[in-house]
Design a protein around this nucleic acid. Sequence first.
DNA 1: GTTGAGCGTT
Length: 292
Amino acid sequence: MAELYIRVAEDENEEPMEIPSEDDGTVLLSTVAAQFPGACGLRYRNPVSQCMRGVRLVEGILHAPENDWGSLVYVVNYPKDNKRKMDEMDAASAVKMKRSIEKTSDLIILGLPWKTSEQDLKDYFATFGEVIMVQVKRDVKTGNSKGFGFVRFTEYETQSKVISQRHMIDGRWCDCKLPNSKVFNQCLGSPMRSRKIFVGRCTEDITTDELRQFFMQYGEVTDVFIPKPFRAFAFVTFADDQVASALCGEDLIIKGVSVHISNAEPKHNNSRSPSLAAMFDQTPYQYPSSHV
DNA sequence: GTTGAGCGTT
């Protein structure tokens, strides 16, 4: 599809602005946000049904309905807590609620045969339900399996079933459990008022632009930082601390990689996380009063 | 080129 411009407006009755598409016909959310700061998506009125329809958004990329943007006017979506008069807590509690009801987690698989590959894992676990991520942990130098890995399912019922039994994989009995990091996270108390999140388990091919485009869907992103040289983590700062705290504890999938979101800790700090310190120490962790 | 309880390059 040749490069073209699509018509975007704040509101159906406002004058539209022309916004460029990419070579493949998609439109980047970041392009929209450049003109409409805080935008998190697009919608349009379907000429046939007269209903508003949402535009497909995958990892920061907006896809044309029916592969053709046409001459329709697309209307900007904003995060609910920006536009509507919602209670202060709603954005955060909505995510937390969703998580507590039926949110899947990465599961650790212990005892894998050395030869088992990610494809083997995917083939095996697909018999239980839809798999959205598998990993075999390997020695970075030799590439040899460390004998354990991770799996993530779409459906919570699938996860429950998989946890409830042992698994014969390539001739060995393996256990699937909630990883320790998860168990601790469930004990996390009140979130701190930080607008910055720590994005752990990043791979080297994930760029700052991709992080920005991905996290835009949750709220306005004001900063992305990736340490160099590569250290497998990044920081993302939102305009709204509610968005940041709502994401803490989540495992999100970016470019097929499961990254882990936690609160960005203060720089000078002992190696133990606040939640661990709070659990094992008598003295509660003191959150810093001013922290960006 | 080995191994067999564990926990994902903060």
